[in-house]
Design a protein around this nucleic acid. Structure first.
Length: 245
DNA sequence: CTAATTTGACCGTG
DNA sequence: CACGGTCAAATTAG
């Protein structure tokens, strides 16, 4: 249920913010990286919440770089102006019920549903990574991916890599992801997941998950190599009911 | 040798 | 028509 997910995300964000406050009040034991991680996670919670609210590809909110938090207010305004329908910029999230639209209704409200393919979920998951080890983990997140393309993106220094699940042939798994290095100084990769895996994770590397419980301190502190990897949720995808060749 | 990646062409979308 | 995503031939890795 999207309602619950949004609330979970916002709770996460709140917890991250609390942790950040603790870290800021205790500057001796707090590294810059941890602080940045917490900020990053807070923003991620917002982004996830917003993309949940912008349900089902009707409106997609994408963040493009870690600079997002530097221009956070600008971005918020932009997002608000892009936000669907009549939500006030200051609408409380406790008003979530107003966004709780049955999914079939959302689908039917889509203007051009050219094919079921356009219903595919898009998940923008920004993974911040330290060093080469982290890069490997960003590539190898529990599934096996094969690269099928690479593209230079206009403003970006680094090209974007396009990967698809290797079990596309065998299991018809249509999951896809993009990895883009965002910055030189702190090595950040923007990873966008499309669709869900219908296959099982094949790699020995377990998928990192962030639990839905509010207490995630250990998880956060553990993830200095992969600063944040969010669980690829099992959003149902109508595409997978289609016959596969 | 086969499998995976690279890379320019192609193509749809805004 | 430019940009971003995908295809597929060529090339490299295993």
């Amino acid at each position: 249920m999207d309602h619950k997910r949004v609330i979970d995300e916002l709770i996460k964000g709140k917890e991250f913010a609390k942790q950040l406050r603790i870290h800021l009040n205790n500057s001796t034991s707090s590294s810059y990286e941890v602080q940045e991680l917490l900020i990053h996670n807070i923003l991620n919670s917002y982004e996830k919440s917003l993309s949940l609210l912008a349900t089902h590809g009707v409106h997609l909110y994408r963040s493009t770089s870690h600079e997002s938090y530097l221009h956070f207010e600008k971005r918020v305004k932009k997002m608000e102006s892009q936000a669907p329908s009549s939500q006030s910029p200051h609408s409380e999230f406790s008003d979530l019920d107003q966004f709780k639209v049955p999914s079939h209704q959302i689908f039917s409200s889509k203007k051009k549903s050219s094919s079921d393919e356009s219903m595919q979920k898009l998940k923008n998951i920004q993974v911040k990574v330290n060093g080469d080890k982290g890069f490997q983990e960003a590539l190898d997140d529990g599934y096996s991916w094969s690269k099928y393309g690479q593209k230079d993106i206009l403003g970006a220094k680094h090209p974007r890599g396009y990967y698809r699940c290797t079990s596309r042939q065998t299991q018809g798994c249509l999951a896809t992801k993009q990895i883009q290095r965002v910055d030189d100084a702190t090595i950040i990769y923007d990873i966008t997941y499309h669709g869900n895996h219908t296959c099982k994770p094949s790699s020995s590397t377990p998928q990192l998950e962030i639990q839905n419980q509010p207490s995630q301190q250990k998880q956060v502190l553990k993830s200095l190599d992969i600063i944040s990897t969010f669980k690829t949720e099992n959003l149902e995808c109508p595409l997978y009911n289609l016959p596969l060749t």
